[in-house]
Simulated assay, not measured.
Amino acid sequence: MTTPTTTTMAAKTIAITGGARGIGYQTAKELIRRGHRVAIGDVDETRAKEAADELGVTVVTRLDVTDPDSFRAFLDMVEKQLGPLDVLINNAGIMPTGHAHEEDDAVTRRQVEINVLGVIFGTKLALQRMLPRRTGHIINTASLAGELAVPGLATYCGTKFAVIGFTEAARQEYRKSGVQLSTVRPTFTNTELVSGTAGAKGLRNAEPQEIARATADLIERPRPFVRVTRFAGGMVAAMKFVPGRVAAGLGSALGTDSVFLDDVDMGARQAYLDRIRNN
């Protein structure tokens, strides 16, 4: 169980999707450490309950973010047991790898449903609760792959580009409402999502604790977005001003044109792929 610590910010009621593992789990842990009231939902009910026991979370349930009724029930539970929703973190997401033309249609659909529709459904449901109160914060977990395309992740990149575009449009739409909307844009992070991959040459993956801290800081000091790590984020921002031929050459030098294609250890990745297909 995580031991809470006090912060200068008043405790908030925070709901996290995909909270059973990885970035979602570490974000819950960090927010509890800072004294907030946290609820987690995850499609893997067994692991979600285990995570809740480890974290000392009392509000936990199976959540299918692709089902608006499931999402609505989750938020109803949160508000009934913890009070009005202050922050929703739309964290749930999946990342299969491979050549686009070989990707099974069911896998393509699953990515779009979880990574895009789940975020849109959650954002809408949270807005419906927050707008009448003129306060609240919705944080959507995107990716630096939503700004810079990566071979082997075509559908995933497309979904994260969509998350960034949707959130930015909604942020501008509701900029005078009192409700904040933000994106967290991690580099590749050492969770199950990157199992069986080696990462780019000379660039380290982030740790989920880093993303958790950045998300918690974003709640305390709202901004439109935050990139993590600082170095990877700066590199992605700079690449937007680099000619395409130079960018392609740099990608080859770093190995990013093969790290999610020919260089993937599918045996090491199989357990993750089985889980995301079966849940």
Rank of each mutant, 00 (worst) to 15 (best):
T2R: 13
P4I: 09
T5V: 14
T5H: 15
T6K: 14
A10F: 02
A11K: 05
I14A: 02
G19W: 02
G24T: 05
A28K: 00
R34S: 07
H36W: 02
H36A: 04
R37T: 04
V38Y: 06
V38D: 06
I40Q: 04
I40E: 01
G41R: 09
D42H: 11
V43F: 03
D44E: 08
E45F: 12
A51I: 11
A51Q: 01
A51V: 10
A52V: 11
D53A: 15
E54W: 01
V59W: 01
V60P: 05
V60E: 00
P68R: 12
R72W: 00
A73P: 04
A73L: 08
A73R: 09
D76M: 07
E79R: 07
Q81E: 15
G83F: 08
P84F: 10
D86N: 12
V87Y: 02
I89G: 04
I89L: 10
N90L: 01
N91F: 03
M95V: 09
P96H: 06
T97D: 05
G98V: 06
A100F: 14
D105R: 15
A106W: 01
T108M: 10
T108W: 05
R110N: 13
V112M: 12
E113T: 08
E113F: 09
E113M: 13
I114L: 04
V119L: 08
V119Y: 00
V119F: 08
T123L: 07
L127P: 05
Q128F: 07
M130F: 09
L131Y: 02
T135C: 11
T135R: 14
I138G: 02
I138R: 01
N140H: 06
N140V: 00
N140G: 02
T141C: 10
L148V: 13
L148F: 14
A149N: 09
V150T: 15
G152Q: 06
G152D: 10
G152W: 06
Y156W: 12
G158C: 10
K160L: 07
K160Y: 14
F161K: 01
A162T: 13
I164C: 01
T167R: 00
E168V: 07
A170C: 11
R171C: 07
R171G: 05
R171M: 05
Q172H: 15
G178E: 03
V179K: 01
V179T: 03
T183V: 14
V184N: 04
N190L: 15
L193Y: 11
G196S: 11
A198L: 13
A198P: 11
L203S: 05
R204G: 14
A206F: 12
P208Q: 06
E210R: 10
I211M: 04
A212Q: 09
T215V: 14
I219R: 00
I219K: 00
E220P: 02
P222A: 03
R223C: 00
P224M: 05
P224N: 06
F225C: 09
V226D: 03
R227G: 12
V228D: 00
F231E: 10
A232N: 14
G234Y: 03
A238Q: 12
V242T: 14
G244D: 13
V246K: 12
V246N: 02
G251P: 02
S252Q: 15
S258W: 00
S258Q: 15
D263F: 08
M266G: 10
G267T: 15
R269K: 15
A271W: 02
Y272V: 13
D274L: 08
I276N: 01
N278G: 12
